[in-house]
Design a protein around this nucleic acid. Structure first.
Lengths: 155, 155
DNA sequence: GAGGAATAGTTAGCAGAGGTAATGACTTAT
DNA sequence: ATAAGTCATTACCTCTGCTAACTATTCCTC
């Protein structure tokens, strides 16, 4: 289903600079909500938890504070997420080598397996939808993804 | 702080098809979280509530069900959001002309003013960050925004 | 036209995930 | 040695989504 021809579509509005922020925000929020609903059903971990596992897989063992900064949440939120992952057995905590205040979080073998398995069947909802796009549209998104991430990291 | 040079960055990973879904998801989730934090402080309405006002401003009066479909939430969620907007005086409800089951939601004058004011000072956090991008990057996002929105609408 | 099925909205209750404030443990600096 | 700062945690609250159940209305079938 497409929009009616006589009403302002996202495409038209986003052509102006004033509308870009608004439309980008709408698209991001809606897509994120959709992603939360459409995640693979046989994965009992939430999107946030999988995100943390992904960061650990990409960057290696990190402290709770570093994880919080990477995911742009406050430390208490990351403590809770990490504790969930601890209960599910996907990460382990160990004391920092030189600083007794910090706690280092690292992937367990199970967590590593889960990341690999998740990547292997990541072609679920989003990847399927991506396949329905034109190559040009995929190319746009491939360029846009890192920009979105950089925007989230700014300041 | 930026990533170390010897580890896989978002840019590198997203070059492969297998990684695009993952990186797009991460970027979308982080940016959305950031947007929720960085919204303009003198606006007491949430992002969702402003989103609904924006839809009403763009598409005119809609029923609760149409709003729920547009924002990709379930009807009860939209009922609550609309009731919040009703309390704040930004929308009004009226019965549907021909179907007694439906409830039509329309912007009040205050709501219209709020949308205009919000657009006028929308150049807050995101727009400022957008300005810090290169023209090429902005062009990419301008193309990407409608694609993201279409992805969220799929199926 | 009467009765059952379908649809729109709401109410009630629950869960996830975020935040702030306050606390405890440890480190650093004076 | 002590004061100040930092990291993680705990306690508590809010927001926003969901499903299930309920009401009111409309549509369909006989």
């Amino acid at each position: 289903m497409t929009y009616a021809n006589d009403m302002p579509t996202v495409e038209k509005v986003a052509r102006t600079d004033a509308g870009l922020a608004a439309e980008l925000r709408l698209g991001v929020m809606r897509l994120r909500r959709r992603l939360a609903v459409e995640r693979h059903p046989d994965n009992e971990l939430s999107l946030n938890q999988m995100g943390v596992l992904g960061v650990l897989a990409r960057r290696g063992a990190l402290t709770v504070g570093e994880l919080a900064a990477a995911e742009k949440v406050q430390p208490p939120s990351m403590t809770r997420t990490v504790n969930c992952l601890l209960e599910s057995g996907d990460v382990a905590k160990r004391p920092h080598a030189t600083d007794g205040r910090q706690v280092v979080v690292e992937l367990s073998e199970q967590g590593r397996q889960r990341v690999l398995a998740d990547r292997a069947r990541r072609d679920a909802w989003l990847a399927q939808r991506l396949r329905e796009l034109t190559p040009q549209e995929r190319a746009v998104l491939r360029q846009a993804a890192p920009i979105l991430d950089r925007l989230a990291q700014k300041d």
